[in-house]
Simulated assay, not measured.
Amino acid sequence: MANTNFSVSSFILIGIPGLEGLHGWLSVPICFIYMVTFLANVSVLLIIKKEQSLHQPMYLFLSMLLFTDLVQSNSVFPKMLFLFWFDHREISFEGCLVQMFFVHSISIMGSSVLLAMAFDRYVAICHPLRYSTIVTSPVVAKIGLLVAMRGTLLIFPHPFLVKRLPFCKSNIIENTYCEHIAVAKLSCADIRINIVYGLIVALLVVGVDSIFITVSYSIIVKTVLKLPSQEARHKVWSTCVSHVCVMLVTYIPALFSFVSQRFGEHTASSTQILLSNIYLIFPSMLNPIIYGIKTKEIQKNMIKMFYPNRSLAIYNEVRR
C-alpha cells in the first residue's frame, strides 16, 4: 500500500486522535454549541429582516457575517456529530471535496465581511457627513457580490488540486472534517503546489484583511479620541467594541490553526485538530451573542421577540 497507487472512493475521518474514547462525551458540548449557534444566528437574522429600522448598512453586513457562520456550521457540525454519536466515519471522495470547498470558501467570505464592516465603521466615524452617499444600498449589494466571488474564486482550485493527486498511503484523515492540507498529506505525490497555493491564499486573505482592518481601526481610534463629548466617545466605542471582539474571536484561532497545520511538526496532532475545530466552531457561536449583548437595537428586539408583553421592563432592567 505504501508504494502502490489505489483509487480512493471515500475517506475515513478519525475525529480527534488519542481522544476516540471521549468522542461520546465531546458530542454533548458540541451538540449544545451547534444548537446555540443555529438558534442565535437564525434569531438575529430574523430580527434584522423583520425590523425596518435595522435595514441599514451596518446590520446588512452583520447579516452577511451571520449567514456565513450559519452555512459554515452546517457544513461541519452534522458530520462531526454523526462521527461522535454513531461512529459514522466514512465520507465519499466527492463529499469530502464539497465539504472542503464550503469550509474554506465560507471562511474567506467571513473574513471579507469583517473587512467590509471595518470599512463601514471607518466611513461612519471618520466621514459621518458623507456616510449616506458613500455606503448606499447598491454599494452594499456590490460588496456582498465581491465577498461571494472572492471566497469562491480563491478556493475553487482547492478541490482540483486534491483531485489530481494520486493516493498510495492511506485514506484515513486525522480530523473531524476534510481540511485541504490534511487530505493532501495523504497523497504519495509532491504536494508543494497545494502548500504554496494555500499560503498564497492565506496571505491574500488573513494577511491583507487584518492589515486593512488594523489600519482602519487605528484611524478610528485617533478620530474618537478627538471627539469633544465624552458621551459621543462612549457611543462610538460601544459600537466598535463588538466589531473588535468578533475580529479577535475570528482571527486568533484562525492564526493558531493555520500555523499548527503547516509548521507544527512537533505539535501533537490532537492539539492541531482541536485548534482547527475551535477556529470553525466558536466564532460561529460567539458572533451573534457578542452583537446581541453589545448592540442595543438587536438586544431590544431580541427581548421583544421572546418576551413581547414585558419587553420594555426587561430591557430597562438589563440596561441597568
Score class of each variant (00 low, 15 high):
10 S>Q: 13
228 P>Y: 04
179 E>P: 09
179 E>K: 08
297 E>F: 03
299 Q>Y: 08
70 L>M: 13
318 V>C: 11
9 S>C: 09
230 Q>R: 14
231 E>N: 14
289 I>F: 00
155 I>M: 06
73 S>W: 06
235 K>P: 06
233 R>E: 01
109 M>W: 05
293 I>S: 04
126 C>M: 04
167 F>V: 02
191 I>A: 01
308 P>K: 04
282 F>A: 04
38 F>E: 08
91 I>N: 00
198 G>L: 00
281 I>E: 01
5 N>A: 12
111 S>I: 10
39 L>A: 05
316 N>S: 09
311 S>W: 13
32 F>G: 07
140 V>S: 03
247 M>A: 11
277 N>V: 02
169 K>I: 12
28 V>E: 01
317 E>V: 11
249 V>S: 08
27 S>H: 03
309 N>F: 14
154 L>Y: 05
15 G>V: 00
64 M>Q: 07
75 S>T: 10
282 F>C: 06
165 L>P: 03
119 F>N: 06
191 I>T: 03
214 T>W: 02
257 S>Y: 08
302 M>Y: 13
132 S>L: 05
87 D>A: 12
301 N>E: 08
108 I>N: 03
129 L>F: 14
237 W>A: 12
19 L>F: 07
69 D>T: 12
95 G>V: 06
208 V>K: 11
94 E>I: 12
181 I>L: 15
277 N>S: 07
101 F>W: 01
287 N>Q: 08
57 P>A: 01
138 P>F: 02
44 V>G: 03
101 F>G: 02
132 S>A: 13
287 N>P: 05
82 F>C: 12
275 L>Q: 05
17 P>L: 03
225 L>I: 12
250 T>N: 14
34 Y>F: 15
196 V>Q: 09
305 M>H: 11
148 A>G: 08
145 L>T: 14
129 L>D: 15
43 S>H: 09
146 L>A: 13
207 G>S: 01
43 S>G: 00
306 F>W: 08
164 R>T: 11
187 S>M: 02
114 L>V: 01
132 S>P: 05
140 V>N: 02
265 E>I: 07
192 R>S: 15
162 V>Q: 02
122 Y>N: 05
77 F>N: 14
239 T>P: 10
16 I>N: 00
272 Q>F: 07
41 N>G: 01
246 V>L: 05
154 L>A: 00
293 I>L: 04
162 V>H: 02
205 V>F: 06
35 M>Q: 10
270 S>R: 04
63 S>N: 04
95 G>D: 01
109 M>R: 09
28 V>F: 11
199 L>Q: 14
159 P>H: 01
199 L>V: 11
235 K>V: 09
